[in-house]
Computed example of a mutant assay.
Amino acid sequence: MSLVIFNGSPRGTGSNSKLMADSFLKGFTAESSEESKVFYLIKKKDLELHKEEFKNAEKVIFIFPLYTDAMPGMVKEFFEEAEEYNSENKKIGFIVHSGFPEAIHSECLAEYLKRFAEIIKAEYTGTVIAGGSEALKFTDEKMQNKKLAPFYALGSRYASNSKFDSEITENLSKIRRFNGFILVILKICISLGIFNINWNKILKKNGSMDKRLAKPYKNI
């Protein structure tokens, strides 16, 4: 059998999706000799190749970030292309991650993804929801490896039965919604500007710090 992973992040090879997919594949290939491939949906010129690979693959995983409580446009576009195929013999799963630590943000999308699998008549192997992913690229190697370890384990377990391990999946989405005490701490951090430190670095790097509060369409 063959496994094909589609990376649906607009950041392509510079994405957190790639870090997670790489870790997943390391775990997968450590336990399986099956063929595996990775494709980037951001490469629009390869659309026909992507469609052909999707059509022929026996196992497919889409990994992408949560965008405005849904998915990147390129992922939705590809889903619409893929709806024309009858995928009765295909296993399909999804890994959705976001900067939000709480899993509740991605739950509606998970329901849609399950429905998409039903529409194309594929065997739905689950949706993994991983929160707090934006911090991955800002951490040192030791911390990054720690955060990616669950994805390695997920790939390792997937190699045995082509399904996402329920215990690992539940652990990755264990923070469904913050409780009262955590919310108080978060409000303090917001007031101190702690969450803006990395964003401000990016703004300064691009010479946009003074424009961060601009409202160009306010009076239209």
Results as ranks from 00 to 15, higher is better:
S98M: 01
I175T: 14
S33F: 01
S191K: 15
I5W: 01
P65H: 09
Y112F: 08
I5Y: 06
K121N: 13
L172D: 02
V4I: 11
N200L: 03
T68P: 03
I182K: 14
E52A: 11
L186R: 10
T169E: 00
V184D: 08
S2D: 15
K55Q: 12
K147I: 02
S133F: 00
A159M: 10
Y85M: 04
L49Q: 13
I190E: 13
T13V: 12
K204D: 07
N56V: 02
S133I: 07
G73N: 06
K218V: 08
L113G: 08
S208N: 14
G8R: 05
P216H: 10
S36Y: 08
E52R: 13
G14K: 15
Y67R: 15
S87I: 03
S32I: 05
Y217L: 15
F79H: 14
A82I: 10
E118P: 00
K37V: 04
A159E: 11
K91E: 00
S9C: 05
H50G: 03
S166V: 12
E134Y: 09
F94P: 01
A159L: 08
E141Q: 11
P216C: 10
G131L: 00
M20E: 08
P216W: 02
L154G: 05
G180Y: 09
L154R: 10
I61T: 10
A82Y: 03
V128P: 06
E134M: 06
T125M: 04
D165H: 11
D46Y: 12
S36N: 13
E107V: 14
G155E: 02
S106R: 13
E141C: 05
I42R: 06
L109Y: 00
E48A: 15
R157Y: 07
S133T: 13
F54Y: 15
G14Y: 07
F195E: 01
G155N: 08
K137T: 11
F181L: 12
E84R: 15
T13W: 00
E80R: 14
R212S: 07
K215V: 01
G27W: 09
C108Y: 12
G193P: 05
D210R: 13
G207S: 12
I42T: 05
T13F: 01
G155A: 07
L203E: 05
A30W: 02
S98D: 09
D140S: 08
T29F: 00
K44S: 12
E88Q: 10
M209K: 12
V4T: 15
F164I: 02
I119A: 05
S106K: 14
V75C: 02
F178R: 10
L154Q: 08
F64D: 04
E53F: 06
C189Y: 06
K204Y: 00
I168Q: 13
R11I: 04
S87E: 03
A103K: 13
H97A: 00
G131P: 09
